[in-house]
């Protein structure tokens, strides 16, 4: 067992969690918000130490927290690029060419899904419907929605990221 101090969440994350406490009758209900906050702090993914620290903060076992982390698509247990691209390929987007967009993006980045480009800039995944089918084909660039994609525009969007 690592020493307790090392398991502590950074103060600003703990403050943010504390601010949410009055909203819920149980501590466990803070788990999803706490994981979102921790993931933000740890550059978009949840290393083991982050999971241990969240478990410690909420008096939950790490096993319980791992169980939750693995259930949801938005929590990541591996490093991601500075930018995370989620390309929707569900049916409404596919009907407007999402598979071609994904192929173009993959060729351009020259890595597989969930791998990080050698410069650390990007990683991508295909994703289920993102609730913006009127913009099909579309993707999420970090927290933003980008619609009306074409095989060319998706490359340009990547080029323009820092």
């Amino acid at each position: 067992m690592a020493d307790a101090a090392a398991l502590r969440l950074p103060q600003e994350v703990r403050d943010a969690i504390d601010a949410l406490r009055p909203r819920y009758p149980t501590e466990e209900a803070l788990l999803l918000p706490a994981l979102h906050l921790a993931q933000k702090h740890w550059d978009g993914w949840l290393p083991d130490e982050a999971i241990a620290a969240v478990a410690h903060e909420l008096n939950l076992t790490p096993a319980k927290v791992y169980g939750v982390v693995t259930f949801y698509d938005l929590y990541h247990q591996n490093p991601i690029g500075r930018h995370r691209l989620r390309v929707c390929t569900n049916l409404p987007c596919a009907l407007r060419g999402a598979e071609e967009v994904l192929a173009s993006l993959k060729e351009h980045l020259a890595v597989d899904e969930n791998e990080v480009t050698p410069d650390g800039k990007c990683s991508f995944v295909h994703f289920e419907c993102l609730g913006a089918c009127e913009q099909a084909p579309m993707m999420m660039v970090d927290n933003d929605y980008r619609g009306g994609l074409t095989p060319d525009s998706v490359r340009r969007i990547v080029e323009e990221l820092d």
């Binding site: 209900a29 909420l58 169980g67 259930f71 949801y72």
Partner: peptide
Amino acid sequence: LDMYVHRGAGAYICGEETGLLESLEGKRG
């Protein structure tokens, strides 16, 4: 009356009402 926004974390099944409740309570949905 208090009102709060609670964010999910990516799982279709959390739209099913009892899956949603589990998720709201901090569990797998």
